[in-house]
Write a protein that binds this DNA or RNA. Structure first.
Lengths: 219, 219
DNA sequence: ATTATAGAGATTGTATACAATCAGTACACA
DNA sequence: TGTGTACTGATTGTATACAATCTCTATAAT
């Protein structure tokens, strides 16, 4: 295996820290601090921050500082509006070509999940389903853009997905989507996918507003 | 007016050079050369190149070199498929809110254009129309993404738009779109917009293939 | 003749020092 | 008391030197 570049070390470190709430929305990221923590120079840290900025996870204010991105409700609306339409677009392109055995595997896996299953299992299956759709859609730019959109809400989603019943409901929605794709039924699949994404959006919005009230983000 | 950062100087310089064919697709960009030409250090040049990479105008191959992006027909297919659907999405959101006087101005301007008008006038009105749609769509992320998609084909489009009759036809298509928006007729506007983008795509594909044959790009 | 290998040159990747700019503070002044 | 102004510290922006890695070529071995 080829050695990882220092830029990538910094990138993965920062990305993980943001998504797991070790770095809270709105808090500053000082290049020197990160380079000290990782024992590398500022240069690769800087390049990693530029990448994260392009991805929408941090906001660089020139000559002032770099800050962890704060999601507003407006942002959530924008992101999910795009996500819904782009994923449907990918679905239309992919529905005939998604391998049936992959669908069967995913379906089998979904039916094993219960309320007691560890949340990571839900996250994994969620990523799998969306990857299945997007990758088979065959448009690389669309796939990359969706990744970037998802990264911007993932931070909040990791909280919202844990709300009571949400995991269970989400699993049922996934199952409905998978089964519609298995039947190559684009009408149903599209409707289920749209509904699922709208539910996730609502859930994300709720958490977003709660955080606001509690002063977790903003001030 | 605030002084422009050296990173931006390098960014604008390189972007312009690529879009005007001073730098041909596939040709290498050496950081040291650019920094010499602009009398600045490699650091801001490097940051500019990373920006251009995120935008899809250059391709950085780690430890090997940086190259001007070469558009393949596959890329053109991807880009226009996305552009068509995203612009329609913006149009649906924008059609009621695009100011009538802006539409009237653009319509008046379009009717003054003839085969003899300088091509820049066509480019300007083209940009205006698409900006009108995308900005009033109200989704900033969608607007930014479309900008980046357009940048990737602009290089080729500046050639394709000059083909015989293309300017004239394009003007008529624009006029039809504008008039449908004036009437707030989403059905017609969407159909005209889709047709227009498909025509531009076809024209772009033709030029793309010609360049291939002539060895302008590739080798 | 073909292949393998070592070395040189070119280019990007990284470290580090210095410059420029911004925010906040203390202080002078009205 | 309020306001403006210069100063200080912190942080990003830029310059430059050095390291790592890749490509290409020359050379040697089979």
């Amino acid at each position: 295996m080829t050695k990882e570049s220092r830029k990538n070390i910094a990138y993965n470190y920062l990305r993980e820290a943001i998504l797991t709430w070790k770095l809270h929305p709105g808090s500053p990221i000082v290049e020197q601090d990160i380079s000290d923590q990782l024992s590398i120079s500022r240069t690769p840290v800087r390049e990693a921050l530029k990448l994260l900025e392009a991805e929408g996870l941090v906001k660089v204010m020139p000559q002032r500082g770099t800050f962890v991105f704060e999601l507003s409700t407006q942002d959530v609306e924008e992101i999910f509006a795009l996500r819904e339409n782009l994923e449907v677009l990918a679905l239309q392109a992919a529905i005939q070509s998604i391998p049936i055995d992959e669908l069967n595997n995913l379906e089998a896996y979904l039916t094993t999940l219960t309320e007691q299953s560890p949340p990571e299992h839900f996250f994994t299956s969620d990523r799998q389903l969306h990857a299945l759709i997007v990758v088979n859609g065959g448009n690389e730019r669309l796939a990359l853009f969706l990744d970037s959109l998802n990264a911007q809400v993932e931070q909040v989603r990791r909280v919202s997905a844990l709300r009571p019943n949400r995991l269970d409901v989400s699993m049922r929605e996934h199952l409905a989507i998978v089964q519609a794709i298995q039947a190559r039924d684009i009408i149903t699949a599209e409707a289920e996918l749209r509904q699922h994404i709208r539910n996730v959006k609502q859930s994300t919005l709720d958490v977003c507003r709660n955080m606001w009230w509690q002063g977790t983000i903003g001030k």
